[in-house]
Amino acid sequence: MASLDYIFQLDVPFITTRQATIALNTLSPDPILKPNEITVEYSTKDTQLSIVFKGLSDRVIRVAISNVIENLKTIVECMEEFDN
């Protein structure tokens, strides 16, 4: 297996711990299509969601990050409108 040398960590602050957990539970079910090229790990600490990308190249990491950010936008927008 090729080594996944390119690493990037994304930290996203939420308002509450619950929101951070919901975001993690929403993002984590979808499988990574090419696990030998990239891995994505999610974790939360208090109100912060951390996402660690480990990939074969800058390019595959960029694609994965942009995908996660697109999904995060939907999640945050839902929280803004419907969390009350």
Binding site: I22, A23, N25, T26, L27, P29, D30, E70, N71, T74, I75, C78, M79, F82, D83
Partner: peptide
Amino acid sequence: LQAVVIAARTIAQLW
């Protein structure tokens, strides 16, 4: 499909 299920999962947990 994936874009929509993200919203479904989020609101299901919120509510």
